[in-house]
Simulated assay, not measured.
Amino acid sequence: MQEANASAAGPVVPCRGTGCRAREAAGRGKQHRRPAQAPALLCTACRARLGLELMRLPDLYEECALALGASGPRREKVSGGPLPGMPFNATAADVRAAVMGVLGAWSALVVQERGAAAPRRDAAALARFLLQHVGWLAAHPAAGELSEEIARVVRRARRVIDPDAARQVAVGACVEPGCTGSLTATVRARTPHEPAEITCDADPAHHWLGHQWLQLSRRVRPGTAARAAGAATGAAAGTRWIGAADIARLWGIAPGSVYRHASRARWRRQTRSGRTYYHEADVQGTLAGRQGAAAAG
């Protein structure tokens, strides 16, 4: 078997995966990385993410091919592809080259260090080859770099396929008891009137919509909620003041509706640096009622 020569499980070490690096950045400390069981250098969640992204890369690579003639940075291409003078999406071409470069380089590492037969040089074969050796790669000293490079090229490919793709903001550690996952707030640019979503990378059952954020954020480590939502924290303990743009994003309503609700319901407000912020309790009281009425309808 592939892992037959792996050494016995060693001590617990901080994960080097890209997901845990994001946790560290959000929490401002290495202690926020999940544990990995040596000899592995990736935790269970980051290894699963690596495998999933390797499985997705061939399809992303092919979808980028479909985008070669779509809008984006353009240049003329005279050999192959569109005819001279026809639009050519240089970004899509660059991302496809990056996908092949990353998959090819890490496959060459496996071939050199493990003595494995080299795979065929196409995206599907290279990704499949790396998946076959993902356990060994997760224990390689460069496991963290592999995790980051694969995640980066996946993000680039997704931006080519959907330039208006959802924006993601790291929130912090999952608030569910015993969960070691990280929370991410997702805002979809193409559907701004849909609420933001807060999801956990370790357990998809840990999932909240934007309008539940005000309650959820009280359970998150102090400071992370305000950074994720862009909210301003009031001077009084337990009081939070929230900007109109963040209210619109979290509840999935038009900014104009925010101002209308604020006026009609007479939300308490304060101004800082030229921006207006509204009292959390007033926002929650009005929009929770709105949500309930929509559900009843």
Score class of each variant (00 low, 15 high):
A4Q: 12
G10F: 03
P11K: 12
V12D: 10
V13G: 05
V13M: 10
C15K: 04
R16A: 13
G19C: 03
E24I: 15
A26T: 12
R28Q: 13
R34I: 09
Q37P: 00
A38C: 03
A38I: 07
P39S: 10
L41T: 02
L41P: 00
E53L: 12
L54F: 01
M55E: 14
D59T: 14
L60N: 07
Y61V: 08
C64H: 01
L68T: 12
G72P: 06
R74G: 11
R75W: 03
E76S: 15
V78H: 09
V78R: 11
G80F: 00
G85T: 09
G85W: 04
A90W: 05
V95N: 04
W106I: 09
W106R: 12
V110G: 06
R114M: 13
A116T: 15
A118Q: 14
A118N: 10
D122A: 06
A124F: 05
Q132F: 00
A138P: 02
H140R: 03
G144S: 07
E145F: 07
S147I: 09
S147T: 11
E148V: 13
E148F: 07
R152P: 00
R152N: 10
V153R: 11
V153G: 09
R158Y: 00
R158N: 11
R159W: 05
G172M: 05
V175S: 15
C179V: 08
C179Q: 06
G181C: 10
G181P: 07
S182A: 14
S182C: 03
T186F: 00
R188C: 12
R190E: 15
H193L: 15
E194S: 13
D203N: 15
H206G: 10
H207D: 07
H211R: 13
L216P: 04
V220F: 00
G238F: 06
I242C: 04
G243C: 02
D246C: 05
D246T: 13
L250H: 12
W251C: 08
P255N: 02
S257N: 15
R260Q: 10
A262S: 10
R264K: 13
R269W: 13
R269F: 12
Q284N: 01
Q284H: 03
T286F: 00
T286I: 01
G289V: 01
R290G: 10
R290Q: 13
G292C: 03
A293G: 02
